[in-house]
Amino acid sequence: MKVQARIFIILISLVALLFVPRLFSMDYYMHMFVMSEIYAVLALSLALIVGFSGQVSMGHAAFYGIGAYVSALLSVNFGLSFWVTIWIAGFAAGLVSFMIGVLVLRLRGHFLAITTAFFGILVGLVFNNWIGVTNGPMGVAGIPRPAPLNLPGFTVAIQTRAHYYYLGLAFAVMVAFLVYRLVNSRIGNALIAIRENEELARSIGINAMAYKVLAFSIGGGLAGMAGSFYAHYILFISPVTFTVAESINMLVMIIFGGMSTLFGPILGAVFLTVLPEFLRMAGSLRLVIYGVALVVFIIWMPLGVWGSLKSFWLGRRQASLSEAGESQEHS
């Protein structure tokens, strides 16, 4: 019953999202929405690492960048199709995050945050200075659009922003579903157990390191796929997009929305992609408003918007349940 209601709401929202390009035909808005989708994937993948496993990463943009560069360079230099390179990009970013994870996930708290930030800086240096391959600060231009998609019966070109919007929607929905399945599985239980108390988790037989590395690798791989999507959407990439500031931007999104929920990171991604654009009207006050709003959030809503709403609702439900007596079971 409860699950059915949820599925119903999700389906209705998805159908509503399908009509967005009809309502907002301006390129400017559509661009914001496509970027929101990319950030939704990034935020979900980061939430898997920070929210569900409790490992603070300040280097997520590095994996985003690795995916973008791998995909762009493979298609520019070797003519590979986006439909192939997005997988290679995901795999490459996942492999690098696996190796980094093995090295750094022994660290905790600030040490981990700082080390991952350094890793982000290091990757930025590589993008800037390995000129023979990455073309340095000049970036990689002339990235081809995804080839037309051959679906049974008809062919869809990926040309307009609306096309990218639908492709991005499919991508974000698939990633959300994957993360949903993951956090509601045994693996998800293990991750939460580790986040809450790592030593306890180990003492009952959870191989904490293995699960942390797994979450970090999957998160990094998904960010790499988002990078590939970005590269073949903007058609140009350069190191300035994949900085530590961008990693912090992603962290802010999940803090804002609520990082140990699924809807929270999506909400944060959309809101913080759209909001700064609207704040442009406020001119130079924009960054001040933005900063103050964030501080307010972190202090008064540590669970994020969605997390706070959820715990408010759960709290009321728990209270009404205990009033109703002790003998109820859900599930």
Binding site: R186, N189, A190, I192, A193, E196, N197, L200, A201, I204, G205, I206
Partner: peptide, 17 residues
């Protein structure tokens, strides 16, 4: 030491990891 944010059953199931 238990996991305070998990339910009783979830705590137990995690023990059967």
């Amino acid at each position: 030491r238990v996991w305070p944010q998990m339910t009783v059953v979830e705590n137990l199931e995690t023990g059967a990891f």
